[in-house]
Design a protein around this nucleic acid. Structure first.
Lengths: 335, 335
DNA sequence: GATTTTGATGGAAACGGTTCCACTTTAGCC
DNA sequence: GGCTAAAGTGGAACCGTTTCCATCAAAATC
């Protein structure tokens, strides 16, 4: 591989001049510049990233951690981050979880990996992080933002939907449609965003005069298959409910399939409501009523905050994009 | 940030000794090792990746390019690659497309980015690459494999399902179920894997005595929304067909929704067949009959070949994992 | 015409690791 | 107790960039 010194020699200039041409910074005569450019062409010179990072201390790269790479939930978020980054000429390195015992350990290991990789800043999407973990990350790399996790001490760098309010909105929509007997498929208990939306949901139910303790609940892991299994378990307990709230759309898709399999018509015999508003929810049978969480916008704001932090930019940052119920056909109004 | 020299000074040893402790290579006395380890702890020393790559020339990192990050198709493939890599203590840097004019340009830019990033090898998933592009990549980084693209000159490094055979299998399954009037929703014309499966499909139709020129065809872009639109366009042309083959499952999901919307019962009035075998296809209404492409295995074999190339490993590599039709409920047998 | 400013330029030093070589110690052997 | 082999060690040189400083020529100023 050709180095900058090879280029300098071939162009008959010093390394400084070559460096100036590459970075187009500092004064270079037109003549020298063109000779350098030709030499670069001829030698197929490509500057080494590692060698460039070393003295500069900046890599123009943002590290992103997402807990898992499966299904259709994370891809639009990654896409939003990726395209925003490219618009600023920056790059992204991604790390995924699901390799260690817990999501928490994955996220911590991810933060370490991304920091060691020389990322200028970190965008971490993980709900399982404790306060102490966040302090730990802050020592590793003070420039970071959190997505889908909110802790008091780092408020300004936390970007999360208001899951509690969104959960409450879901409950109110169901109540408004006349439902009084409601079941729930939750996500994993350790996931804080799941807990918040369920808490909001149950609290709003209580406000509507429904006893939260009487609500049949099953756990899933956010996957469609787990939603299917949880719905079956719920059906097996006897169908004492007219509506089913699922903690995310993918589980709702599984629940829809389970209902179909059990001969339960949606929405005639059972109303089903999802959460997140993934694109696919518009195409289920019947189209899924869901709570639209503006994930793309939230992720974009988190990223912009991070870019302000890392590169002294002055991008607009909002931290409260509201969720809203998306009424489609899977929820019926009952008497 | 502490450097290796800080550690050496604090531990009262030379930098060589510290380096040996970190890499656990070469002889170090127990006493010196423990002093070094303590100093590392106390100073929170973390070796700089860039500084390490520079003299070593290896980064223990594989670069992966996938054309887009959207939907549920690519995530299981990325997951398979990621977990396999981690088992070998290696890392992954991903680059996505969808930022430039064409997928081809994206893939080329991706290969350059990943190479500049110091990746030891490249795994590139792109169907739009021409032979000349592949030569170009080979000059950038001779260690690479191609996924979902096969070119004669690089045969040993190409890992692709046999789309033509798989397309033919789809056609034969439909014929065997008694269908004679069949419509098709294709993917983008520029995508070579789409062309192959459609070619195989039509050829097999001809073998069954069906005129390929009489087959109504519409194009989509592999997204569910485009499948929905294509199906609507097909329905608008008059429903002269009893079966519909979609070039991937996501478009089939869109087509299913379109049929439902148009009041066409699947599979009673229309049979629908997908392609790929994504997890979600098991949960549609009705469950989708599809051609199962063993993407995870193919990706894993491609990766293992790459690791053999990069690190002199001796992992097993197979390049012909067959596809098979997965019979579910969306295709009915007709008289 | 002397002096200052500006524009170009080359090259040394620095970034933070790894590697290798020369040097000491210690152990092993007859 | 002398000789050899092995273990342990320190530090210089190197990897390929950027950055900064010294230098010099040409242009601008008075």
């Amino acid at each position: 591989m050709a180095t900058i010194r090879d280029v300098a020699k071939r162009a008959g200039v010093g390394v400084g001049t070559v460096s100036r041409v590459i970075a187009s910074s500092g004064p270079v005569s037109a003549d020298a510049a063109s000779r350098v450019r030709r030499a670069i062409e001829e030698l197929r010179f490509r500057p080494s990233h590692a060698a460039r990072v070393l003295p500069k201390g900046q890599s123009q790269t943002i590290g992103v951690f997402v807990p898992l790479v499966h299904g259709a939930f994370y891809t639009p978020i990654l896409h939003a981050i990726y395209t925003a980054l490219r618009e600023h000429g920056l790059h992204m390195v991604v790390d995924f979880g699901q390799t260690l015992e817990t999501e928490r350990q994955d996220a911590l290991a991810g933060a370490e990996f991304l920091t060691d990789r020389g990322c200028d800043g970190l965008l971490i999407m993980a709900t399982a992080l404790k306060s102490a973990d966040i302090e730990h990350i802050a020592q590793l790399q003070p420039k970071f933002v959190l997505l889908n996790r909110s802790v008091p001490h780092f408020r300004a760098n936390c970007f999360s939907p208001d899951h509690q309010a969104a959960g409450a909105a879901a409950a109110r929509a169901l109540c408004a449609a006349g439902h009084r007997r409601i079941a729930v498929i939750e996500g994993p208990a350790r996931s804080s965003d799941n807990r918040l939306r369920i808490r909001g949901f149950l609290a709003a139910l209580e406000e509507c005069g429904i006893d939260p303790d009487g609500v049949p609940r099953e756990h899933g892991d956010f996957s469609p298959e787990s939603g299917h299994a949880a719905a079956e378990a719920l059906f097996a307990r006897g169908r004492t409910f007219t509506a089913l709230f699922c903690a995310n759309d993918e589980m709702a898709i599984g629940a829809l399939a389970a209902a179909r399999h059990a001969g339960i018509a949606v929405p005639q015999d059972l109303s089903v409501m999802g959460y997140d508003g993934i694109d696919l929810a518009a195409l289920t049978a019947p189209p899924l009523t869901t709570v639209l969480i503006p994930w793309r916008q939230i992720a974009t704001h988190a990223l912009q905050r991070l870019l302000n932090l890392c590169y002294g930019m002055n991008l607009p940052v909002a931290s409260d994009v509201p969720a809203q119920v998306l009424n489609r056909e899977s929820v019926a109004r009952i008497a």
